[in-house]
Amino acid sequence: MAAPAAPAPVKKPRKMSSAKRGETLTAYLFLAPYLITAAIFTFGLMAYSFYISFTDQEGAIDKKFGFVGIDNYIRAVGDNQFLTTLANVVWYALIVTILQTIGAVLLATLLNSKMRFKQFFRTIFYAPSVASSVVISMIFLLLYLRTGFINRFLDIVGLPSDTAWLQNSRGLFEILIPGEQTISNPFLRGPSVAWMAIMAMNIFTTIPTLMLMFLAALQDIPGQLYEAASLDGASKWQQFFKITLPLLRPTFVLVLVLSTIGTFQIFDQVAVMTQGGPANTTSTPGYLIYSKVLGEKTSPESGYGAAMAFILAAIIFFFTWIQRRFIEQGAQKD
């Protein structure tokens, strides 16, 4: 309700005036379409999901199901399949977020200065980002073929060129550590070749979007700061590290938080390119949850899937909270 106004000089009736009531009614009518859809499809479904996660509901259509308390959550933290998808997605989020942020900052810096054709380059760089995840996945399925252009490029520069990228399940550390090793722990094994191929694709296609955000922020930094710094004899490098990076802090928070939320939920590329294979090394929680609700590959388990979704959401929330805290605390120290 309306905040109590400062002591009124004239005694006013506590009720809203009829004009104000009319205004309130009109405002809520204007907001009604959003409020109704948000109440049902965002908050309603979230509450419903929370409820389902404590039941043993199987399929979507009405069937008898019972309340099982926190059994689903207990089962999830001991479920190897789910833990494997978490290990995969943690590697994915870590590597993709870091590399695409660095790439975007570098590209934005390269573009941000007085130059001709800036519009042109910006347009060219951004264009591939408007294509759908399905288009990108199809195109890279072609490029990653054993006889595809990635191998052709490696062949030209004289590297081994016979990798079946999306069928190779060897983990990064199994490759790096000499000798024929197999590591059974899905996290310690490191991301598989197939998984790293999907990472490379997504880093490549996300850099331009993030680049635009950094570019917009760079253009808001007053030029006088650099003038003053160069008068004081600061080198280009010093200017970059002492002026540019600290002033980009809010953009870093935004980009990291958005990337974290996005990467942890990766689904489309897995569904189109690998369906979680080879040997579950590209399976993600999003994909597993999707399989659980539709009962593809497994029997449908909606309740269990909902519990996994909340665990995933908690993990995302935890990481974004850490990022905000870490970077904002750093800002106070400066």
Binding site: L45, I61, F267, I289
Partner: peptide, 20 residues
């Protein structure tokens, strides 16, 4: 704040809800 809610949360209930 609702923009930060991960979409994966509404996936299952969305399917169950619309199936009905």
């Amino acid at each position: 704040a609702s923009m930060a809610i991960p979409g994966v949360i509404t996936l299952i209930p969305g399917y169950v809800f619309f199936a009905k």
